[in-house]
């Protein structure tokens, strides 16, 4: 194969209880269907910094609290590499717990403040109030993307994430809660990294985001490729099923007519 990408799946045994594996499946298949070689590298406790730095796309999902504690200890050792990767434009999608990890800190309901990686300019506080749970639809309004469709998913989080000035939200909430109770905004984007609360999982039902990540990974790994050449590699895929699945959610939420 002429082109190949190494997808780094951060903590598949610890940070993957909400079906976020679907994001890995989506990225893998969308590469394979276009003849792009794919390797999926699980990055977990036993992985080295080199294992991590050899990845071309990163994905991290959500987890239970106790498992996040284990991950936090390990991530502190890989912080430098991960931070450099994000800064250098390695594309990644960090969902729910994964999103929170990338921020400055996580403050628990009892006031305990847990230092996080500080890779993204966000912080998360859990006010101890009800979790924000339900279907969500957002409109992506961000200069980096040119998505025509609404993005849909399912959110389930106790923490409220506040964005700093160095990041932009992924989009505006049309239905649901979003990153916190008040801003009506969802997610955070910095360089080629996306933090979001959307399970669903997010990539299969919103293939535009998956393709954007793949495009950025190709750009980064093969700098001599022109935009036209990348577009030629990213052949169109029949996404009629994801369209219909998305429509079903939008109808249920009353956003489009039955």
């Amino acid at each position: 194969m002429k082109y190949s990408l190494n997808i780094g799946w951060l903590y598949p045994d610890l940070m993957s209880i909400y079906g976020d594996r679907g994001n890995i499946i989506s990225l893998t298949k969308r590469c394979q269907w276009r003849g792009i070689g794919v390797e999926v590298s699980p990055i977990s406790l036993q992985s080295s910094e080199k294992d991590l730095s050899s990845c071309d796309i990163l994905m991290m999902g959500g987890a239970q609290d106790s498992q996040q504690t284990i991950v936090a200890q390990d991530l502190s050792k890989k912080k430098k590499v991960l931070s450099e990767m994000v800064e250098s434009g390695i594309p990644g999608i960090y969902v729910c717990g994964g999103f929170q990890f990338l921020g400055h800190y996580y403050k628990e309901a009892d006031g305990t403040k847990i230092e996080q990686l500080g890779v993204l300019d966000v912080y998360t506080e859990n006010p101890g109030r009800e979790r924000l749970i339900g279907n969500i639809a957002i409109k992506v309004e961000n200069s980096k993307f040119n998505f025509k469709d609404l993005v849909v998913g399912f959110e389930n989080h106790g923490g409220r994430t506040i964005l700093g000035s160095k990041v932009e939200p992924l989009g505006k909430v049309i239905f649901g809660y979003g990153s916190n109770d008040s801003a009506k905004e969802e997610g955070a984007v910095y360089k080629n990294s996306i933090g979001t609360y959307l399970h669903g999982p997010i990539l299969p039902k919103n293939p535009e985001i998956a393709d954007w990540l793949i495009e950025k990974a190709l750009e980064k790994k093969y700098p001599s490729l022109s935009l036209g050449q990348i577009n030629n590699i990213l052949l169109p895929i029949d996404d009629s099923m994801s369209q219909k699945a998305k429509e079903a959610v939008l109808k249920m939420l009353g956003i489009v007519d039955n």
Binding site: G22, I25, M241, S242, A245, E247, A248
Partner: peptide, 13 residues
């Protein structure tokens, strides 16, 4: 109710 989500899962499987 979510037949197309299942269809999508099968597409990717």
């Amino acid at each position: 109710d979510r037949v197309y989500d299942m269809a999508l899962r099968f597409q990717y499987a």
